[in-house]
């Protein structure tokens, strides 16, 4: 696994990755309108206020869409084929692109309940999911 794709850590996402390392799935909460936002951004796309804080989520969600990659598009993923990618609806509202562990697993379906799982990958911990229960 060469050339792993890493986050470009900025003030907007540092807490997300620190949270993952600490076992917490965090998104931004707008201090003006309470909107929970993901993807991470410098201001709220609803009200444009720039004040925000980190909020930990339950990590519970539902699979909205399930893909299995058979085609390699990047050297970092070539040796991991076939692997799944999911669109997850989180209980508190935001949606994420992620994976269900194990990465090669296909034994789950759209609609399944999932919960966050913190997956160490080199020096970074990546929030991924497991089928719940």
């Amino acid at each position: 696994m060469t050339d792993l794709i890493r986050p470009v850590v900025t003030d907007n996402n540092r807490g997300f990755w620190e949270g993952a390392a600490a076992g917490e799935l965090r998104v931004q909460r707008c201090l003006a309108c309470d909107h929970l936002r993901y993807p991470l951004a410098p201001w709220c796309p609803v009200c444009l206020d720039e004040r925000w804080e980190w909020q930990a989520l339950s990590g519970r969600g539902t699979v909205l869409s399930k893909l299995v990659f058979h085609q390699s598009y990047h050297p970092a993923w070539k040796d991991r084929l076939p692997y799944n990618v999911v669109l997850v609806q989180l209980e508190e509202g935001p949606r994420m692109i992620s994976n269900v562990l194990p990465l090669t697993g296909e034994d789950f379906a759209v609609g399944d309940a999932v919960e966050v799982a913190f997956d160490p990958e080199g020096e970074v911990t990546i929030p991924r999911f497991r089928v719940a229960g």
Binding site: P7, P39, V85
Partner: peptide, 19 residues
């Protein structure tokens, strides 16, 4: 290409128009 900005969707292996 992967969508996403600082946190590229490529972190989760999500690449390209077919996907």
């Amino acid at each position: 290409a992967a969508a996403g900005d600082d946190d590229s969707w490529g972190i989760w292996g999500m690449f390209g128009n077919a996907a």
